[in-house]
């Protein structure tokens, strides 16, 4: 007999709650140390478990169980969604004279959550609509304020009468841009003239870093035949520009 066969045999004997072993099994156990130890341990386990008795709870278990059961059944009875069939039938019999049947009652009970969900959805839509309307109002106000500020920028002087048409406003913007361009062009031309130092006297265009070298390619010692009329010429140009701008402002 092999050790595997020995283990199979004794396990089967223990499955049948039998403690009698054949001579063959006893002979194998006497010559095989591991099988002998296994047999001893299994016999020990069987002997210990045979003494297992019933245990009782340490308190009044039955009263606690029934109390918990009654509490759970009471909770189920009071819940409207888990109303017993008998209670529904009783309600139906009472309500029948008033043309309220069991189906209608069940339908109404089932419609409760649906109605609540519908009301909640409607409230949510209203809130969203109000929020959107408020946001659109704020955006419109900001757009209007932006347009007004553009008008103020277009009219440097406070206008006595605000233009009402978009064409007039565009015209104002164009005139404003043109005046800016004229001013820039005039100042640039004057700067070039001053730098070239053809017309103005040398004292007005001298660099703070005075030197004997040439300035912008024109030496200071160069003769300037038109220098006596330079100031008059500049004043004439300035007055011309002023007249042009003044007339344009008054026309607008």
């Amino acid at each position: 007999m092999t050790c595997f066969e020995f283990e199979e045999h004794i396990q089967t004997q223990f499955d049948l709650h039998v403690q009698c072993f054949s001579e063959e099994l006893s002979a194998h156990a006497s010559i095989c140390g591991s099988c002998h130890t296994l047999l001893k341990h299994l016999q020990f386990i069987d002997a210990v478990t045979a003494q297992w008795g019933e245990m009782e709870p340490s308190f009044d278990f039955s009263a606690e169980v029934i109390k918990a059961y009654n509490a759970s059944t009471d909770a189920e009875t009071t819940s409207p969604t888990t109303m017993p069939i008998q209670s529904m039938s009783a309600l139906n019999s009472v309500a029948t004279p008033f043309s309220v049947g069991l189906d209608a009652l069940q339908r109404r009970t089932a419609m409760g959550p649906a109605l609540a969900a519908l009301v909640a959805s409607a409230v949510a839509v209203c809130v969203m609509f109000a929020f959107g309307w408020r946001t659109s109002q704020s955006a419109q106000l900001a757009h209007q304020q932006s347009a007004n500020s553009n008008r103020v920028i277009a009219n440097q002087s406070p206008p006595t009468q605000l233009p009402t048409g978009s064409t007039e406003r565009q015209l104002d913007v164009l005139i404003h841009d043109a005046r800016e361009a004229y001013s820039a062009l005039a100042s640039q031309a004057l700067q070039h003239v001053s730098t070239a130092n053809f017309l103005l006297p040398p004292t007005e265009t001298t660099s703070p870093f005075r030197s004997n070298d040439t300035m912008n390619g024109f030496p200071d010692a160069l003769s300037r035949p038109l220098s006596p009329w330079g100031n008059e010429f500049r004043d004439a140009v300035d007055s011309l520009f002023d007249r042009i701008f003044t007339s344009q402002d008054s026309s607008t």
Binding site: W52, G53, E54, M55, E56, P57, F61, S62, A63, V65, I66, Y69
Partner: peptide, 14 residues
């Protein structure tokens, strides 16, 4: 109900 519990409580608890 109480009798039912008392009859089987030893079995179940063990």
């Amino acid at each position: 109900q109480r009798k039912f519990v008392e009859l089987f409580q030893g079995l179940i608890f063990s």
